[in-house]
Design a protein around this nucleic acid. Structure first.
Length: 419
RNA sequence: CGGGCUGUAGCGAAGUUGGCUAUCGCGUCUGGUUUGGGACCAGAAGAUCGUGGGUUCAAGUCCCACCAGCCCGACCA
């Protein structure tokens, strides 16, 4: 990708009114732009990041049998009335069609996916089933805040599971938990993310949240230092000992965190509203058991920026960086431009993702922008490096700069990016 | 939804007890000199001062209402 062709530009400064760290870095670097409070535009580089996050989630969902679908954002009033949530769910954005027919923008999709599965599942032979989507959600938050961390429109993966009995639900719930840990590991967030007990609703005593430690998180959690399990403040009063290792709660450590994922046993809460039943081996009609499992993909993008940054800009983990390599040419010499161009073409041919800064800008601007954008590897070609027939390589997260011979660079990159 | 702060050029800001043609920096355009950590010189364009009303000889500045954004709180199955 050639930087000259990007329509976006970095900004030296943004308003003092944008206080959130993730939003101000992402806006400065030209990854997102704000349309309204809690409503953001994903620009070319930002969209690449969001898609990479979504792709990692998608792969892990497919691995545990998830089948991807896409449900509508527009949902009719009647389905919400069936579950008594039309009035109770106050974060619903509601609107009317031409003939006063009422709709809500989808804030979550139990009301859509449950009757959908009811059309196809009749027998124990049809269970279990796992269905998910990665879709734009709408919630009429009373106060949008903290950039991508709490928006009114945001991207989320929601998985729904359907089971013949509670036991099967519980087994799958554990599988999803394991899949989530894999996702967080691939996102570079595993060391900062704690499985956290939280309030559970009518069916299960507790749900589980995935809480990612961050100073700007809005949740308060209490972490067991021995086994890493954590407890949301909303339930800590009823906890005496750690559920995992029995350590007393006085030993727990308080921390601020961002709720990046949530898994929930729904039981028959929604299947009963829609009279969704199946016939078992003996011909007897039984309730379908459900679970739901969310990960906020856009919130994760914000969380990663909150966690991985320094004074100069963002430090993307290599799994979700918009490109792996930032190639800069410094200086205006024609031979230099030609060499850089050749290298760019070769790297692209080899399958590397490269952002090539081919702009007519000064060294300072290019280097500062590279730090701000935060791609994992920076390659610099200049008259200075060309004299040694070499190229300069720097990791965004290290101070060390290496000089590599140009004819060895491809091999070197293949090794260091585990290709 | 309650409280506080803010709104002036594409972006960031200044504008005193109301007073002349609304300043400054960045960016943009033209010409020239530059090129390893946000270069320099000269010139130019760019603003119904958030919107509507009011007070006044006179309003960016004072008053009222509304809109928008940010922060704190409440809320967030």
């Amino acid at each position: 990708m050639r930087q000259k062709f990007l329509f976006t530009k970095t900004r030296k400064e943004i308003g003092a009114e944008e206080k959130s760290l993730n939003a101000s870095l992402l806006i400065k670097a030209g990854f997102i732009d704000k349309l309204a409070a809690g409503v953001y535009i994903y620009l070319p580089l930002g969209l690449r990041v969001l898609r990479k996050i979504e792709d990692i989630i998608r792969e892990e969902m497919n691995r545990i049998g998830g089948q991807e679908i896409l449900m509508p954002a527009m949902t009719p009033k009647e389905i919400w009335q069936k579950t008594d949530r039309w009035d109770a769910f106050d974060a619903l954005f509601k609107f009317k069609g031409y003939d006063e027919k009422e709709y809500a923008l989808g804030a979550t999709h139990e009301e859509v996916v449950t009757p959908l599965l009811k059309k196809f599942v009749f027998s124990y032979r049809d269970l279990p089933k796992y269905v998910y989507q990665i879709q734009t959600k709408f919630r009429n938050e009373q106060r949008a805040k903290a950039g991508l961390l709490r928006g009114r429109e945001f991207s989320m993966k929601d998985l729904y599971s359907f089971h013949a009995d509670e036991k099967d639900l519980e087994n799958y719930y554990e599988m999803v938990q394991a899949a989530y840990f894999k996702i967080f590991a691939r996102l570079g967030l595993d060391k900062l993310t704690h499985l956290t007990f939280a309030s559970g609703g009518a069916f299960a005593k507790y749900s589980h949240e995935f809480q990612t430690l961050s100073e700007n998180g809005e949740d308060l959690i209490y972490i067991c230092p021995k086994c890493r399990l954590a407890y949301n403040k909303e339930i800590i009063n009823e906890i005496e000992k750690c559920h995992g290792c029995k350590l007393g709660k006085s030993e727990f450590k308080e921390a601020k965190a961002i709720e990046t994922g949530n898994i929930f046993k729904l039981g028959t809460r929604f299947s009963s509203s829609f009279e969704f039943k199946y016939v078992d081996e003996r011909g007897k009609e039984k309730d379908v058991f459900m679970g739901c499992y969310g990960i906020g993909s856009s919130r994760i993008m914000g969380s990663i920026v909150e966690v991985y940054n320094d004074k100069k800009g963002i430090l993307w983990p290599k799994t979700i960086a918009p490109c792996q390599i930032h190639l800069l040419s410094i200086g205006e010499n024609k031979a230099l431009a030609k060499k850089t161009e050749l290298l760019y073409n070769e790297l692209i041919k080899k399958g590397f993702e490269v952002l090539y800064d081919d702009r007519d800008e000064s060294a300072g601007i290019k280097l500062n922008d590279a730090d701000l954008l935060g791609l994992p590897l920076r390659l610099v070609l200049s008259e200075k490096t060309l004299k040694n027939n070499s190229i300069e390589l720097k990791s965004r997260n290290l101070d060390r700069i290496e000089l590599i011979k140009i004819d060895k660079i491809v091999k070197y990159l293949e090794d260091s990016l585990n290709k």
